[in-house]
Design a protein around this nucleic acid. Structure first.
Lengths: 204, 204
DNA sequence: ACCTTTATTAACCAATTGGTTAAACTGTAT
DNA sequence: ATACAGTTTAACCAATTGGTTAATAAAGGT
């Protein structure tokens, strides 16, 4: 079932189609013909506007990166106290992933496939977001606001619980017997459940 | 760098090579010629012993499933108390993943790509592992041993924190600046840290 | 109207890739 | 030695696929 996109310029149609195909099939599984069909245009136009598959993929990946990463830094940098930040992060990040459920698997597949390529092209001049987070945790520990926990594990735990359910969605639906509507509600709950779970664990 | 396997029968060499290639490249990215090279044999032998790419892939996937899933049920079913079970699960499951770090991304990519196919071929007659876990949680809540938590979220949280670090490994190494040795130590810590983090959150 | 540039397409091309074949090789039983 | 079954290989084949080309259509300026 190919849904042809209308009302946009050709490059826009191509990007929308490429995003859809690359995010669900990945670089290796995506077919240029499928992207052209999805966009409702001739395959040659893909090369006319974007040179080749790799360039088109990089375009999509770059876009996806901008959704996936800056959101984390943005909240870590904000001026809320720790618990508020944790709540805000879990709520907003899970919400963003709910609207882009294929993002995590897409990004992580590519980073795993070519870590060095990713580091050089997409991780130059990034803010040291984890160091900031870590520093704040250490401060809160020193001020006796939270138990002495390892910031690295806390950070990874939080990220894991936010992201993984989207990667494991179809498996979890099979295991739990949930349907689409129940899963949607389950994710809705997690927007507050995850932060609560974390805070319960680290609060004094 | 192709390392040719020796001392085994051809089918064994093929399976070992196929596992290596499929787990790191996935179905779409894997090449039959690469598998043959890795096994140090002629490509035609792949078809002689395993018919075609799909059959060979299913062989590997079936094997991987047997590592990935039964381990969960095994521990959930054991006769320990809840906290011991959580500790045992996190320790043993993370340990297993440490020895098979590509397993999660491999399994989850395939399940996401073809959920129905997975359900029919690999999830028939499985034990209702989540229901058992859920029942035990409800019992512990009723007996006032732990806070009233939602078993579904608890289960997904635990699985997420165990599995995700292996999917996000290269990204986390870039973000945190860890090298291989540090990451290994980080995982070693998580074998106890994750369970502790969970128990701190739910204990009364 | 006419020309020029840009956009779009059908047809085509070359490389890759999964899979086949027929011949050669290896070991074993007679 | 010979026959025979199972094993292995080089060469080949057909389909797929990323990418090109040359011709056509559309748009814009004069």
């Amino acid at each position: 079932m190919v849904k042809i996109l209308q009302n946009d310029t050709s490059p826009e149609k191509i990007l929308a189609a490429a995003k859809k195909v690359f995010l669900s099939k990945g670089m290796a599984g995506a077919r240029m013909q499928d992207i052209a069909d999805e966009a409702g245009i001739n395959k040659a136009l893909l090369h006319y506007y974007f040179k080749d598959k790799e360039k088109l993929f990089e375009m999509i990946f770059s876009d996806a990166s901008k959704q996936f990463f800056p959101k984390i830094a943005e909240i870590i940098d904000s001026k809320a106290n720790l618990f508020e930040k944790i709540e805000k992060f879990c709520r907003e990040y899970i919400d963003m992933l709910q609207q882009n459920p294929y993002l995590p698997l897409f990004i992580l597949n590519e980073v795993n496939a070519q870590p060095l390529n990713f580091k050089e092209k997409f991780w130059k001049n990034r803010e040291p977001v984890f160091l900031k987070f870590s520093a704040q945790i250490d401060k809160e520990i020193k001020n006796k606001k939270i138990k002495p926990v390892n910031p690295a594990h806390l950070f990874v735990n939080m990220i894991s619980m936010c992201i993984f359910p989207f990667i494991g969605k179809p498996l979890w639906m099979i295991v739990s017997g949930m349907d689409e509507i129940q899963f949607r509600y389950f994710i809705e709950q997690r927007k507050t459940e995850v932060a609560q779970f974390i805070i319960e664990s680290i609060k004094k």
